[in-house]
Amino acid sequence: MTLIRSLARAFVLALLAAAVPARAQDVPPDQLVKTVTLEVVELITKDKEIQAGNRAKLIQLIDAKVLPHFNFTAMTALALGQSWNKANPEQKKRLAEEFRTLLVRTYASALSAYSEQKLDFRPLRAKPTDTDVTVQVRVLQPGAQPVPIDYSMEKTAAGWKVYDVMVGGVSLVANYRTEFNNVVRQSGIDGLIKDLAAKNRRLEGAGLEKK
């Protein structure tokens, strides 16, 4: 009897172990976007502290729920364009970290502007074999044209990852490209790292002051 029970337990554990890594990979990209978006929207609309403007808590929430689904190295590489190859591994790491911090703050800022607009999750137009897709969401707002949000996603070993976000037709990654390359031309990769770090520190300081 105990043998059967422990066998059964082992079997359940084995199933779980097999299911967990498989799950992240198998969730289709449009499903992933929908689940994560709805979860985050529900969390922020219910959280009184976030509603009252607690930016640190909102950033924490984004860190935990949203960031795991982004590929920041790919985003930073795309934003730098040709300058990316001039950076050494250490610089690449620093760039990706600073860019990530900046994007999270921007994202938090955008989310705090959210006020119960309706979301329209568009059906995915892609073949099951595709490894690079665009997931479309539309933010419906009364009296104005809907704002499309397009997530460019790539299939990786760890599941689908976002490598660009287009809001109203504006690619976030492409929009940083000219700025970044201007700085790199004038003061090199280290200059860009310095500028990004300074910008992040400034935003952090401003956020603390407000509270």
Binding site: A74, A77, L78, L80, G81, Q82, W84, S171, A174, R177
Partner: peptide
């Protein structure tokens, strides 16, 4: 576009 070429976007 990933990493090596200039944008021409």
């Amino acid at each position: 576009d990933k990493g090596d070429k200039d944008d021409t976007d």
